[in-house]
Amino acid sequence: MRKLAPLLLRLALWAILALTLFPIVWMVVTAVKPADMSQTLPPVWVFRPTMSNFVSVLTGKTYASQNFGVLLLHSLIVTVASTLLALLVGVPAAYGLARVRFRGRRAAATWILSTIMFPPAVSVVPIFILSARLSLTDTYPVLIVPYAAFSLPMVIWMLRSSIKQIPFEIEEAAMVDGLSQLAMVRVIVLPLLVPGIVAAALLSAILSWNEFLFALTLTRSKVQTAPVGLNEFTSMYGTQWGQLTAAATVTVAPILVMTLVLRRRLVEGLSFGAVK
């Protein structure tokens, strides 16, 4: 019995894992399945994999008015720009919160964190009206700024704790040696902060890439992103599993790779540093 228990535990864990990963595996398997087999029951498990679904999704005008590759490009532009914006304003803010002892700092930090509670479904209503009045609907900025705001609390929290882990004595010594504070930040702090910045950037990118509500509401064809296109995919042409899952796989694959790379930093970031 004593040897059996750990074995059973491992079996149970692997079974739970299989169940957990099943939807993802189903998506990938269906994406490489020949179209005529994808919806047959009983499900076909053995077949010759094909790339034709990916080819038709990425190059053909399989749905709506444009191919899925264009939507991925929109997603990429929005994701990169919002991540850069979040870092551009987030790094100084994190440094200020970590190293400058000014009055109101704690209140500011708490307020920054509290903005994560604002439901996007509520803020999207006024943003929609404002963007229409300013003729910003279906432009990149109308997604870039909100996405940066969505990931900023997390970016600032992650970077603030990274900065605090840099011994302050290093900074002091550099300033004693006559470096200005700005130069010191550039020469000493930023290089040490690179791993933290990379992790924060990847997290911010994941959030932006996956966002749905704002993209659904504020974009039409010019800036439409991949998640919105995926949803339209089924409502417009019924359900063709091969193409749907191929498009879904292309959308999810880069994020899954980043998730695997980040792993612990992902949980650390999403839990605002509660888990180190």
Binding site: P227, L244, A248, T251, I255, L260
Partner: peptide, 15 residues
């Protein structure tokens, strides 16, 4: 086990 975290909610709902 961490993988479901990275799947966009739209994609998981569609699946």
């Amino acid at each position: 086990f961490i993988l479901p975290l990275g799947v966009a909610p739209v994609v998981s709902a569609l699946i």
